[in-house]
Structures are given as C-alpha cells and as structure tokens.
C-alpha cells in the first residue's frame, strides 16, 4: 500500500486530505446557500419597499377615480391593451403550438421553434420601434398598436408553454383515435386541446403577467393617453399603468412619486398573484397529466 491509502481498520473519520476537502466543499455549499438567500432578500426588499411606500396611497378612490386623485383610467387602459393583446396572441400561440406538435416534422419544426426563441429574445424596446414604424408613424398612437406590441411579447411564451403541455398529452390518445378512424381535426379539437387546456391557460396567464408590466412598446404606442378620462376605445391612445409609472419616475415630483408607488403596488400585486396562481395551476395540471 502506498502513501495516502488509509489502514482498512482505522476509524471512519477523515483521513489524508479529506478534512481540507470537506472544509472547501462546505464553503462552496454555504456560498450557494448565501446566493439563494441574496436572491430572495432582493425580492423581499423590492416588494417590501413597494408595499411600504405604496400602501399609504391605496384607497378605493385611488383605484376607481381618474386623475388627479386616482389611477382608474390607467388601470382600465392597461386592462384593455393587455386584454386585446391576449386576444391576438392566445389563438395564434395555440395554433403555432398545434402546428409544432401535431403537424410539423422535425425539419419544419426547427425554424418555427427558432423563430419563437428569437422572438422571445428580441428586446421589447425594438418591438416598440417596430410598432411605431408599422402602426403609429404617419398615423396616431392607439391602444391597439400597444396591444399588437404586447401580443408579440406574449406569443412565444404562449406558444412554447402550450407546446410543452401538448407534448404531455399521451401519444396513445392520438394513436387510439387514429386507429378508430377519427379525423385528425376532430381528435385535435375534441380531445387533445381540451386535455391540455389547463396548461394552455396557465401559459397564457403567465404571458399576460409578463406583458402587463411591459413599458417599452407602450411608450411608442400609447403614451399620450389622457389620465383624467376613462376610455375603452382602443383606436385612441389609452392611459396605462406602466407608462404612467415611467413618466412619473422621470419627473422628480414627490406627489407623483407617491402616486407611482401606489400604482407599482397595484401592478406588482396583480402580477405576482397571477403568476403564483398560474404556476400552482401548472404544477397541478402537469401532475395530473403525467400521473
């Protein structure tokens, strides 16, 4: 036996360099734990700051009246813009997902998947420039233009999310209906999509939560809305929460800051609850489908 080989009968306490290696290993474990603590701490600090500064602004008036006392028009505008965006993006996203899982072979699916990944990676400010060039330039700002911008942000999220759950639908279901001579479109619309619906809805909610806070496309498409007027008309510029927070934060006026904190609190609560709920739902429906 050469050096460094312990006596077989020695106690099972560290021999050789093991004590040193264990110390190093423990240190790396602690660092990894600390990293996780840092991330959670940052989340807590941000959310806590928003609650601490925003809570005092909150009241029924704040949520339901127009400027100068409330942010009702902004909330309504955000709801209209995001809702319309969802109406555009969800069917397209699901159809693309269906194309990927039900129709496309590997060669056709590759470019589509790449497109979705690239679309997901495009900075939202670029989408804003695009919307400006396509729908606003030489025309006027509109909530609808904003919706299109947000739809581009939502589309890849919905498509990839739906694709993931569609892939979880057991292939035995497809084979069974093929074997029974059921037409493809009937089994797709009648069986496959309904059984993946939970996951599709979750993916959509997550995408909406992500898009609801997006500011960059809206400063091009819908930044000139009048915050003192409730409006549902998507063909004109609609006041909305993210752009309002952005402008108030640039103005340097303490009253505006207070209002912006209040809006931040409302927005962040909506987004966090929506995405937490959606995640819980997703975990459940995935378990159900996998189990």
């Amino acid at each position: 036996m050469s050096a460094g080989i312990p006596d077989p009968a020695a106690p099972l306490t560290p021999t050789g360099n093991l004590r040193r290696r264990q110390v190093f290993s423990k240190m790396t474990e602690y660092s990894a734990t600390i990293a996780a603590v840092i991330a959670v701490a940052v989340l807590v600090i941000v959310v806590f700051s928003v609650i601490q500064r925003g809570a005092s602004a909150l009241s029924l008036d704040f949520v339901f009246t127009a400027a100068p006392t409330g942010i009702g028009p902004e909330l309504l505008g955000t709801a209209v813009i995001v809702g319309l965006g969802m109406v555009i993006a969800m069917p397209l996203g699901v159809l693309i997902a269906l194309f990927l899982t039900e129709y496309a072979g590997n060669r056709a699916a590759g470019p589509i998947r790449l497109t979705l990944d690239l679309m997901n990676g495009i900075p939202s400010i670029i989408i804003g420039l695009f919307i400006f060039g396509l729908l606003v330039d030489h025309k006027q700002q509109s909530g609808l233009a904003g919706s299109v911008g947000l739809a581009i942000i939502m589309l890849p999220l919905i498509a990839r999310g739906s694709q993931e759950v569609l892939l979880l639908v057991p292939s035995s279901i497809r084979e069974a209906s093929d074997a029974l001579g059921v037409a493809r479109w009937r089994s797709v619309l009648g069986i496959i999509v309904p059984s993946a619906l939970g996951g599709i809805v979750t993916a959509t909610v997550l995408a909406v939560a992500r898009a609801a806070g997006e500011t960059a496309p809206l400063i091009f498409a819908s930044s000139l809305g009048d915050p003192s007027k409730f409006s549902l008309n998507p063909l004109e510029a609609l006041p909305n929460v993210p752009v309002r927070i952005f402008t108030l934060s640039e103005e340097g006026n303490p009253e505006g800051f207070a209002q912006a904190w209040g809006m931040s609190l409302v927005l962040i609560s909506l987004i966090l609850f929506a995405s937490l709920g959606a995640r819980a739902l997703l975990a459940r429906s995935k378990r159900k489908m996998a189990g």
Partner: peptide, 22 residues
C-alpha cells in the same frame, strides 16, 4: 425558494427601475 426566484423575474422592469432610482 424556486418560485420566489422566478418571482424576481416577474417584477416589471419599470418598477425595478423606479425602485432603483428612489
């Protein structure tokens, strides 16, 4: 912790920026 870390990604950038300034 896993969902909390993902929550961090869900904070809108405009709010993070606002928090950043103030």
């Amino acid at each position: 912790v896993s969902p909390l870390v993902e929550m961090l990604a869900a904070i809108p950038s405009v709010i993070l920026g606002f928090w950043g300034v103030l």
